[in-house]
Write a protein that binds this DNA or RNA. Structure first.
Lengths: 159, 159
DNA sequence: ATATACTTGACAAAAATAGTCAGCTTTGTT
DNA sequence: AACAAAGCTGACTATTTTTGTCAAGTATAT
């Protein structure tokens, strides 16, 4: 039950694009630097999000990426579904593959994975990038108020 | 966002044990046959569930596996957590690894994965094996009432 | 004793993940 | 027109995870 780096990087990248909202396109390089993601790998990820219509690209000098919608209309779920495929916990729930289960309508597991999958979708779709921007502002204030906490941090991992 | 076969086989295996509840131990072989799972692989899975205290084993002839609790007190979440590890969508949320994220309390992604993870746990824990047994009885009735649907099924996949 | 069944650890093929790399196309600027 | 910035695209590869298999045990009821 893990997300791949694609999903995680994707959310963080789009978050950077969202932070840049209203200030023209942001380049892959800038996103990669800010988030510590490989440039080449990020290219792949952003391209996929672009093809899905979630972000838009501007070619040529001073180009880069833009949100295709307002931050409030773009959810974590949009990004995760695009990069990780449909949330089908079990193979037999993927579109077009339903008939593969030899137990089919006698299958109790099917009910379980359907129900849990729906809950996951619900959770992912309930969080927009505007929520993230708001959240970031709150956290920023907290850091200013308690600057000592920041000193304790080190390491190279990322969320 | 897929479950591994371990989690899926685990749920189906425990479901078989639950169906056998009150009738003494059921053997690995019988579970493997009924659910079409490799005997050796299932051994590993059941052993892990046994060590976690979710099921109990009886050795010797006429031995096998039993539920360690009543079906109503055993949830899908218990099985999935044991077989797939804690539901930590991102590495940085695993127990003991929190400090690894270089962004730590400035990290908005962290909030997201925590929130979604909690929803998943909630969904998994809301389904007990008693629910599955009840569900199965309902489905069984439906099959008897509409026997024609069953004829349309084929293939080898499983949920 | 012995047959049945669980225990444990080592091993291996196959698939998915996480990148890397090279060369291309588009477009604004001079 | 030429150039450089920036995205586009597909092929390739190393690593890790998954999905098992196999073999040699240990425990126990009859």
């Amino acid at each position: 039950m893990k997300l791949s780096t694609k999903g995680k990087y994707g959310v963080r990248a789009v978050y950077e694009i969202a932070r840049h909202f209203g200030r023209g396109p942001i380049t892959i390089k800038e996103i990669a630097d800010r988030q510590g993601i490989s440039f080449s790998y990020l290219e792949q990820i952003l391209h996929k999000l672009g093809k899905a219509g979630l972000i838009e690209s501007v070619r040529g000098p001073a180009g880069g990426y833009l949100l295709a919608r307002k931050p409030a209309e773009l959810t974590i779920g949009d990004i995760v579904r695009t990069l990780e495929g449909p949330i089908a916990l079990s193979h037999c729930l993927e579109p077009g593959e339903a008939g593969d289960c030899y137990q089919a309508d006698d299958c109790v597991a099917r009910m379980v994975w359907t129900k849990v999958g729906a809950k996951i979708e619900e959770a992912l779709d309930s969080i927009s990038f505007e929520d993230l921007l708001t959240q970031q502002q709150v956290q920023q204030k907290e850091i200013i108020l308690k600057p000592k906490k920041k000193a304790a941090l080190a390491g190279k991992g990322v969320c």
